[in-house]
């Protein structure tokens, strides 16, 4: 399982970098989404994969059952997902605005000459 997820991480990163290098903003945003997911899987894998029950203490017990999964990487990923959700929503709105203002989604159409 660890091996599969590691390979998946690599594939996701590769796809993300490829997309980020494209000129189109839509693809760039897709790249950012991929990058976020790749990072989440990476955190998940490096936090250690265990075949265990969730980190809950059963009713009436004082301590948890023997093997519980480490809840911290899951909490980190959940937080990261929430944050990237906000970021994606923002960048979609930004993309729309970029299109409205410049009339293109190609980054190279808006050149340095436009500045200043």
């Amino acid at each position: 399982m660890g091996l599969i997820l590691s390979i998946l991480t690599g594939v996701l990163y590769a796809a993300a970098i490829y997309l980020l290098l494209r000129r189109s903003i839509v693809k760039m945003i897709l790249g950012i989404i991929f990058l976020g997911n790749a990072t989440n899987v990476l955190v998940f894998v490096s936090g250690g994969l265990t075949k265990a029950s969730p980190a809950f203490i059963a009713e009436g017990q004082q301590v948890a059952a023997e093997h519980i999964a480490d809840p911290l990487p899951q909490a980190l990923i959940l937080t990261a997902i929430v944050i990237s959700f906000g970021i994606i929503a923002f960048s979609l709105a930004l993309m729309y605005r970029f299109y409205k203002i410049t009339g293109t989604d190609d980054l190279d159409d808006v050149t340095e000459e436009d500045e200043v």
Binding site: G86, A89, F90, L92, A93, Y96, R97, K100
Partner: peptide
Amino acid sequence: GVMLTIMSVILEKVDQW
């Protein structure tokens, strides 16, 4: 609140940013 703000901006009000 956040969801609906974002969605209403994306769906309709992007021009009134």
